[in-house]
């Protein structure tokens, strides 16, 4: 039975992968940051501030990937009722919220020299901000119940509803932005990207995604231990 599928085996594999993943992630960050900060050209329009993009853009990608992970894990929890799926969805949420926060903060740092202000209601920044709100709602919901299973199931439904809504929200924000923003405002992405800029971008993306994996395994271990502890205390109290 899948619901009795052995978490011990899962963690044996995950623990073996963890150090490898951690080393790869650190290596990618080192290489990515080197190319991003030193060995790539300045943008003809944005100047040196373009380097913030290498931290900012992959963080937004990773935040979206976290949301997808959360929704998929939630769906598997609803379908197969495997507790590990619920733990995976819970593990992904704060990591994703962290990535959205990095993306928002770096976007703001980029905005200061480019727009002369710390915050502009640019379509992309606004979309990421709403993604952050979706994460906050999910985290608040899963932790609002005394019964952790109930919280996990409610969260799974919300993650799926959110996943259906994300494209609609994105579209409506783009629409709203074109209505309200003067067309001359510089967009955060160019129409095309030079190959020497693509390399640090991809390296940083790889770094973020492997970091995501590392943090997922660490958080899953903690959440699983917490669940086990809860069960043992209940079992000890009932005998």
């Amino acid at each position: 039975m899948h619901r009795f599928a052995n978490p011990t085996r899962f963690f044996r594999i995950a623990n073996a992968v963890l150090p490898v993943l951690a080393v790869v992630s650190a290596g990618l960050f080192a290489a990515g940051l080197y190319y991003a900060l030193f060995d790539s050209p300045a943008d003809y329009q944005q100047g040196e501030t373009v380097r913030i993009m290498y931290v900012h853009v992959p963080a937004a990608w990773a935040a979206l990937a976290c949301y997808a992970t959360m929704a998929l894990a939630g769906a598997s929890f609803l379908i197969w009722k495997h507790v590990l799926a619920d733990l995976a969805a819970r593990a992904a949420a704060p990591i994703g919220a962290g990535f959205t926060l990095i993306s928002l903060a770096t976007g703001s740092l980029w905005g200061q020299p480019m727009w002369g202000t710390w915050w502009v209601w640019d379509a992309r920044l606004t979309s990421v901000l709403i993604l952050f709100f979706l994460y906050l709602g999910y985290i608040a919901l899963v932790n609002a119940f005394d019964d952790p299973d109930r919280g996990g199931r409610a969260g799974a439904v919300l993650a799926l509803v959110g996943a259906v809504n994300v494209p609609i929200i994105k579209f409506s924000v783009d629409w709203w932005n074109t209505l309200h923003q003067p067309a001359s405002v510089l967009r955060m992405d160019g129409p095309s990207i030079a190959p020497e800029m693509l390399l640090p971008l991809l390296l940083m993306a790889g770094a973020y995604f492997t970091l995501f994996g590392v943090m997922m395994i660490l958080r899953l271990r903690g959440l699983y231990a917490g669940r086990r502890l809860r069960q043992m205390r209940l079992a000890a109290a009932s005998r």
């Binding site: 709602g137 119940f145 409506s172 629409w175």
Partner: peptide, 29 residues
């Protein structure tokens, strides 16, 4: 979703309002 949750009244606003942003945008515009 929030049946049985603590602070259900605030929670429901927190999870529903972001989902209603498209409605707000199209209606107001």
């Amino acid at each position: 979703l929030v049946v049985g949750a603590r602070r259900a009244g605030v929670l429901v606003a927190l999870i529903v309002l972001p989902l209603l942003i498209p409605v707000l945008i199209f209606a107001v515009s």
